[in-house]
Simulated assay, not measured.
Amino acid sequence: MSISNYKLQTNVRLHPVVLFQIISAYERRPKSAKMSVGTLLGRRDKGSDVIEITNSFTVQHKEQIVGDVEQFKLDTQYASEMFELNQVTYPQEKIIGWYGTGKSLSRSAAAMHTFYSRECGDFQPLHLLVDTTLRGGRMTTRLYCAVMMGVPGGTKGLLFTQLPLLTMDTEGDESIALRTMQKYALHPTKQVGRMLPELVHVVDAIRELAVKLDLVLRYVNDVLERKRRPDNSVGRALHDALTSVPMMDAESFRLMFNTNVRDMLLSITLSTMIKTQMELTEKLSCLPDH
């Protein structure tokens, strides 16, 4: 087993829902357990340098000390059954490693690596370590892979090497939820927050875009008037952003925007009708027979 499966350019995308699942598992762990462990699920292509960690589930385990030796037992049957159930709903997700909570790697990391090496098949398992002690007011998240080391014909062991480029990846629904949580975290209120309609989020996103465009225009004008020294990295970033947007006239953009808005309103109307129909069906089914 070598580190050849992973490159320094490997981009690991961690979805926020995984962190929330790990935090929830740690908060709900048994009183006798010092840590929480579980299986990481995601997508990984052989011909791509992108790995996505999209889901996880907790695996039951036991920690006990026999003499001076700390023993760690993982419920492998429970892990297999949970993965089979997850495959029914998300068949595209495969096992890509495991997670653990704590400030540093535990002594059970080698045993966990041995088990998940069989579960991951041709790929090395990843190990996600989440520090739930909040040292320094932050929740540190690190990613490791194991490298076999030792003398040929002699004693061999595992060296856990940290993988770089651990990034957060958010999709539409996740980004809306994160922005809502950030809003109420910065401006706490006694009332419980609620998710606003889709059009309200569109308006807020347009306002944020207008503020960012104003900053860009201010920077460009200052550079043209020689009030600020130009930065090549900023110029290249602006060039990439402008060239990534297809060129179209105002009328074509208006038609495309209005069409998308009508599609969104139609989807909202249909989902509301389906929800109402389900509620009526549920109430009718609860009526007593006469």
Rank of each mutant, 00 (worst) to 15 (best):
S104G: 03
G100P: 07
L74V: 10
Q71H: 15
G136A: 08
S48A: 13
E93H: 07
L129C: 04
G121I: 14
L166M: 06
G121T: 15
G154V: 05
L165V: 01
E93Y: 12
V50T: 15
S104N: 15
F83I: 10
F123M: 14
L129M: 10
T89V: 14
V147P: 00
T76C: 15
L159F: 01
G67F: 15
I95M: 11
S80M: 03
G154Q: 14
A111I: 04
K73R: 12
L158P: 02
S117E: 09
T155P: 02
A146S: 10
G102Y: 05
G153W: 03
T76A: 15
K62A: 13
G47S: 06
D169H: 08
I51C: 05
E81Q: 12
T76S: 13
T89C: 14
K46H: 08
K94Y: 00
M148S: 14
M168D: 00
T132V: 10
G154S: 13
S108M: 10
Q87S: 09
T133C: 07
R142C: 06
L128Y: 11
H127Y: 04
T132K: 07
R118N: 12
Y116W: 06
I53S: 13
P164C: 00
L158Q: 11
R135D: 09
E81Y: 00
L85R: 05
L143A: 08
V88Q: 06
S106P: 05
Q71C: 02
H113D: 11
E52M: 04
I96Y: 11
